[in-house]
Simulated scan of single mutants.
Amino acid sequence: MRISSLAALILLAACGKAETDTQVLAQAEANQSAAATDDGALNCAVAGATEFSRTCTLDREETARGLLLTARHHDGGFRRLLVTTDGRGVIAADGAEPAKVTIVDNGEIEVAVGDDHYRLPATVREGAAPAP
């Protein structure tokens, strides 16, 4: 997914620019992230992996319980998460393992369920901290 950023860097270098225009690169990366979010791609590290990659997908479904997110792994596995309205972000929708939510950045949370970790877009309120 970083090919566009690399292409932008190569184009800038080809134009004879000595310094990399970080704003152009930042915009290219933001556009990639938005496009990936739009097509359901999701950064994840599953089965104990230490590196995140965009190999998972995210399905959204409105249910009687609320918004249900299904994070699907490339190997066929999945986790279901329920979006909360009490400031916790998401909880495990089923299963015995709880979801642990960590604020990564303004606009992004990391959700860990067992050995699986997901980076999800989120609206993070000022001073918000996930409940233990």
Rank of each mutant, 00 (worst) to 15 (best):
M1W: 08
R2M: 05
I3Q: 13
I3L: 15
S4L: 14
S4F: 12
A7C: 11
L9M: 14
L9V: 14
I10Q: 12
I10L: 15
L11N: 13
L12P: 00
C15M: 08
E19Q: 13
E19W: 09
E19C: 06
T20P: 09
T20G: 02
D21Q: 09
T22V: 07
Q23M: 10
E29P: 00
E29N: 06
E29C: 04
N31F: 01
Q32S: 11
Q32P: 00
S33K: 13
A34E: 15
A34H: 15
A34F: 13
D38W: 13
D38P: 00
D38E: 15
G40Y: 14
A41D: 03
N43I: 00
N43Q: 12
A45T: 04
A45L: 07
A47L: 11
A47C: 08
G48Q: 01
T50R: 09
F52N: 01
S53K: 05
T55S: 08
C56S: 10
L58D: 01
L58P: 00
D59F: 01
D59Q: 12
R60C: 00
E61F: 01
E61R: 13
E62S: 12
E62Q: 15
R65C: 00
R65F: 02
L67M: 15
L68A: 08
T70K: 09
R72C: 05
R72D: 02
H74M: 09
H74C: 05
D75E: 06
F78C: 01
R79P: 02
R79T: 14
R80M: 02
L81F: 08
G87Y: 04
R88N: 14
G89A: 08
A92W: 07
A92N: 08
A92K: 03
A93W: 04
D94A: 11
G95I: 05
G95Y: 03
G95N: 05
A96Y: 06
P98V: 01
P98D: 02
V101M: 04
V101N: 02
V104R: 14
D105V: 07
D105R: 15
D105T: 12
D105G: 06
D105L: 12
E110L: 07
E110Q: 15
E110T: 06
E110W: 01
V111L: 06
G114H: 08
G114A: 07
Y118C: 01
R119M: 06
L120T: 03
L120H: 06
P121I: 05
A122R: 09
V124T: 15
R125H: 14
R125L: 15
R125D: 13
A128W: 14
A128L: 05
A128E: 11
A129E: 12
A129H: 10
P130W: 04
